[in-house]
Design a binder for these strands. Structure first.
Ligand SMILES: [Mn+2]
Ligand SMILES: [Mn+2]
Ligand SMILES: [Zn+2]
Ligand SMILES: [Zn+2]
Lengths: 153, 153
DNA sequence: GGACTTACTGATAACGATTCCCATTATGTG
DNA sequence: CACATAATGGGAATCGTTATCAGTAAGTCC
């Protein structure tokens, strides 16, 4: 687990320049709001909602508008630079998509809504095998385990 | 696949009396709206949204209110009689939860939104192993494979 | 550096799914 | 049949998200 976290951290560190470059290559301009949102995304280890990101930025004195957060997340999502996580509470959350493909899935507490990350190679392998046999051209997958977190028990 | 569909059909057939009994045991009354919604749910093989269910019932001449659909789905979900499926388009869909535990997961087309069902024993086994090693007391899981359906390709 | 094109930004209105509220109706119990 | 109260339908309210628009600023070309 420690090794994975370490690798994960490296990937996280690499995401900001990766995303910045991809945006520049796409011909977008670098405004203050978008830069701040990118930095905020780069700093988070798991998913966060648009409103959470907005609140965090406002708390640091920024006058950024909520529309810019939604717009930027939509842009990044369209470019595959963030992954959308749907925990079932009607709020979309986002986390950086690491270019190497390393990712994690989520444990969602049905009582308090807490979200925790996990990774499992055997599970990924099983997903891969399913993806090969179905008619869809599979490009991604979402997995969420639901249950009661240790704090709620 | 044919065998699974067959088994699935049996389970579907058994769901309506199962749910009806569970509701009665819980002390609820049997109103016309709820009965119609239950029958509609029992007839569907995969997930449907509240509005889809409402439209279908209205199309058959029913004067049922949309609030009753949402209320009933919420009630059934709270009792574990329906499973909530979140395909990421901001609309909650529901399908009967079969008492035997048999279930399926979903392929979601990122282009047209089409939803298809699949089942994979190896995947279930992998999920089961993960559930045993994490700190959460896992009670359920959601899996969605995203990609392009054959019609969109 | 200055003019220029146009992407970016923030405020706010609009939207759609879902939830809340309330007066009316209907169920089940005795 | 009378009663207590759950169920119901309509519509208002809520909330996350999206669309609109006028002002601002990034990048480009002299
Ligand atoms: Mn995975
Ligand atoms: Mn499963
Ligand atoms: Zn995460
Ligand atoms: Zn389904």
């Amino acid at each position: 687990m420690a090794e994975r976290d370490h690798a994960h951290q490296h990937a996280t560190d690499a995401w900001l320049p990766h995303a910045t470059l991809a945006l520049r290559s796409a011909g977008t301009r670098s405004g203050g709001a978008r830069s701040a949102i990118l930095a905020e995304l780069a700093a988070q280890t798991c998913c966060a909602s648009a409103q959470e990101i907005h609140t965090r930025l406002r708390d640091t004195g920024s006058t950024i508008g909520i529309a810019s957060v939604y717009r930027t997340l939509e842009l990044l999502h369209g470019m595959g630079l963030v992954t959308r996580v749907d925990t079932g509470d009607g709020v979309a959350r986002f986390e950086p998509t690491h270019p190497g493909g390393e990712h994690h899935h989520h444990l969602v507490c049905t009582r308090c809504g807490a979200v925790e990350a996990f990774h499992d190679d055997a599970l990924e392998e099983a997903i891969h095998r399913v993806a090969e046999r179905v008619e869809f051209e599979v490009t991604g997958h979402d997995i969420a385990l639901r249950g009661i977190c240790s704090a709620c028990r």
